[in-house]
């Protein structure tokens, strides 16, 4: 799967599932970059159909509603751009 990797401080596995057109996803990505942590992200809307299905199935496991962004910080899952929650999880 084509995750993009952003280099930064190692805080364990951080994965962002995002949509390329979504402003909350954009702000989540900006926040992670601003915090200087290493993370991987994927723009689900830009995947080929068969690949997209697999990733959406994964996302639905973490977030049954299937909304974006979904942020996995270790075992923790945050749904939506909840700045305080993200900052706390990375504090």
């Amino acid at each position: 799967m084509e995750f993009e990797r952003i280099e930064g401080a190692d805080r364990g596995r951080i994965v962002l599932y995002a949509l390329s057109t979504c402003q909350w996803c954009r702000r989540t990505k900006e926040l992670l970059s601003e915090l200087g942590v290493a993370f991987s992200y994927i723009y689900v809307d830009l995947l080929e159909e068969d690949e997209m299905k697999g990733v959406i199935d994964d996302v639905t496991k973490y977030n049954p509603r299937g909304s974006f962004p979904v942020i996995r910080i270790g075992d923790k899952v945050i749904v939506g751009f909840h700045e305080e929650e993200i900052r706390e999880a990375l504090a």
């Binding site: 979504c22 909350w24 689900v44 974006f68």
Partner: peptide
């Protein structure tokens, strides 16, 4: 897509 789906939802 041919329609203006919400940018923050996965069409």
């Amino acid at each position: 897509y041919g329609y203006q789906a919400c940018p923050c939802r996965c069409a």
